[in-house]
Amino acid sequence: MGSRQITEKALTMLRSLPRVSLGNIRDNPGYKKNPKRGRGQHGGDKHGAGNKGSGQRQNYMRLGYETGNNPFYLRMPHEHYYKGHHLRRQYPPFSLHELQLIIDKDRLDISKPIDIASIVKSGMYNFTPDEKHFGINLTDVGADCFAAKINIEVQWASEQVIAAIEKMGGVITTAYYDPHSLYLLRDPKKFFESGQSIPRRMIPPPDAIEYYTSAKSRGYLADPEEISKDRLRLAQKYGYELHVLEDDPNYEMLCERKDPRQIFYGLEPGWVINLKDQCILKPKDSELQRFFAS
């Protein structure tokens, strides 16, 4: 009993006690709360819930609803930015600090290009395409401490984030994925096991075209010439020396991009992945090839 090890002490105590069996175990006292309330001092009362209605029935109305009044948030007709808020694309945030953290913890391999699949695989980020989540918004929290040279593809990024990544000699692309592709990226194993052929990635909807074709946001549909011009512009604006990608030893990795129709790195649309036999089925039929190439 002289031990000051907690577990050791507990286990030594057990040695001198009767055998732990079905008959002599019990839960901690106070574990179970009686759901009923007795007839005490306020036994016949309403238990603080008031009489009838919302209070008693625990009927919480949706946020902003004013029981039939024209709600406050709709009274100002000029607040047009609320229009269609429930239909808009959402990008759940992921900060540069968190990105650095998963790199430090070896959850992310920075010798390979990073995309949403590898970030979700790390277990530190999750999103639900059915809640209109369209991927990662890389935020600038921790931009000062970020120190990794990476080739990353996210769905939304601000100028500061782009600058923070390019300052370290890295490359960032913003790319659009339709919800169906995002399901595949979230759980590729489940998709491969389903035995379906990898579909094509869809093009962005009209209101997203501008973002994904502009060089300023490093869109995946932007002109590479424009992007390299903008890299220089951003370096001058934020005052850092731009790394020359061509001289980099990891030039090939840094230049690896997906095709606008491609969902996974290195795997083309139309292929079927067989995880059990470790083989890939590639379509030979010209009709199929034409379909997946379009």
Binding site: D109, K112, A117, S118, K121, P188, K189, F192, F264, Y265, G266, L267, V272, I273, L275, D277, Q278, C279, I280, L281, K282, P283, K284, D285, E287, L288
Partner: peptide, 18 residues
């Protein structure tokens, strides 16, 4: 449709990554 079955393809590295 006809599919070409490739065993131990070089692209398997990309699958393992996922």
């Amino acid at each position: 449709y006809e599919f070409e079955i490739i065993k131990n393809p070089p692209e398997w590295e990309y699958v393992q990554r996922l």
